[in-house]
């Protein structure tokens, strides 16, 4: 898991849900979007990877919707 204080983080879906849960306690959070890539970002951790999109949509999104609501 990346440094929680850093601008960029590499997270598993479960870690991402925990992180968002923490953010949602501090600010009113309605929508979050995941950045596609950055310079020197490996392809397997960028959104240009199909697997990344699958994890976001099929694992993180259901958990997040269940915890916070639609």
């Amino acid at each position: 898991m990346g440094d929680a204080g850093a601008f960029f983080m590499v997270l598993t879906p479960g870690e991402a849900a925990d992180f968002l849960r923490g953010v949602a306690t501090r600010i009113p959070l309605e929508e979050t979007s995941s950045g596609a890539a950055s310079r020197a970002c490996p392809r397997n951790v960028s959104i240009s990877s199909k697997r990344h999109v699958e994890l976001l949509c099929t694992e993180l999104r259901p958990v997040w919707s269940r915890d916070v609501g639609p």
């Binding site: 959070l29 929508e31 950045g35 959104i47 919707s65």
Partner: peptide
């Protein structure tokens, strides 16, 4: 709660 994708279309490899 919504989750979206922010896409910049950056080329990672030539």
């Amino acid at each position: 709660m919504r989750i979206g994708l922010y896409l910049d279309m950056r080329i990672l490899r030539s």
